[in-house]
Simulated assay, not measured.
Amino acid sequence: MAQQFSIAHLTALGCSPPELTYMAARTGYDFVSLRPIYMGLPGEPNYDLAENKALFRETKNALANTGINLLDIELARIYDGLDPKRYLPAFEVAAELGGRHVLSSIWTDDRNFAIERFAEVCDLAKPFGLTIELEFVPIASVYNLEGTLDILNTVKCDNAGLMIDAHHFHRSGDRVEDLEKVPREWFRYFHLCDAPGEIPSSKAAMTRILREERSYVGEGGIDVASIINRIPKIPYSIELPNTKRVQQLGYEEHARRCLQSAKDYFAKHPRQCLSKC
């Protein structure tokens, strides 16, 4: 089966869900990964499809018209004071649009609270046929593979899994060999990008790069192939926000180059299964 690619919404966050879908079709993607859970971050557009019925209908029509599929939605964060039921409208939207997965990450230092709320999120998503994919983020409370596996092994939810981001994996300092201890069924998709090899020493610099300055695959210092070779063959969701490239090229050309650079990289680095993948 040919490798499949999605465009993550953060790559072209200025595009509404229907715009992103049509652009994904024009530039050769198989999926889109949408961001309908509004987080209120500075400059973040509000694409709450559960609230904006017109935008939901336009998105549903775009998916039907293009044949593009919805891979996942984000971001079901676990944070202090969270009532997981707030995510139910987004789960319903994702299911109606044919989505498969929901991305989650943990932003509370209270381990017991995180475990309880993450398990509840998984339970709430299950009737919709959705899986919850836990991602570690270097600026979050759960910031490495060890911490993520601790959560997953504790909750033991059959619709919970692990989502690895190339940028975050490199920044966490984890070893690629450690991926071999992860159950294969926990891998369902992968965030693909590159970034400078030098790891920033400050949180501000780390945040700026992960949100605004990621690199095309093969242009940075991350050994992406070493990660890919130790996980199963799954869809790659290209999450590659780069403000300067978008200003120079526009969203569509940036999206096209994201995909082409990834394909070029894998042509030069054919997949090798180095573990039980």
Rank of each mutant, 00 (worst) to 15 (best):
Q3I: 05
A8F: 07
L20H: 05
Y22W: 08
Y22A: 00
M23A: 14
A24V: 12
R26L: 03
M39H: 06
P42T: 02
P45I: 06
N46G: 09
Y47L: 02
A54M: 06
F56W: 02
A64T: 12
D72N: 15
Y79K: 08
G81E: 08
G81W: 12
G81Y: 04
D83F: 00
P89M: 08
V93G: 10
V93N: 13
A95N: 08
R100D: 11
T108I: 06
T108C: 13
N112V: 00
R117V: 02
R117K: 15
V121M: 13
C122I: 05
K126I: 07
G129P: 06
T131L: 05
I132R: 05
E133N: 14
E133F: 00
I139F: 15
Y143S: 15
D158E: 15
I164F: 06
S172I: 04
D174C: 07
D178V: 09
E185S: 13
F190Q: 08
P200L: 10
P200E: 06
S201C: 10
I209S: 03
L210D: 14
R211N: 14
R211W: 13
G221D: 02
I222W: 03
D223G: 06
D223K: 10
V224K: 02
S226L: 05
I227E: 02
N229H: 13
N229I: 10
R230W: 09
R230D: 08
I238C: 07
P241C: 11
T243I: 12
R245D: 11
Q248L: 02
L249Y: 09
Y251D: 10
E253F: 06
L259N: 09
S261M: 07
Y265W: 12
K268H: 13
H269T: 10
R271H: 09
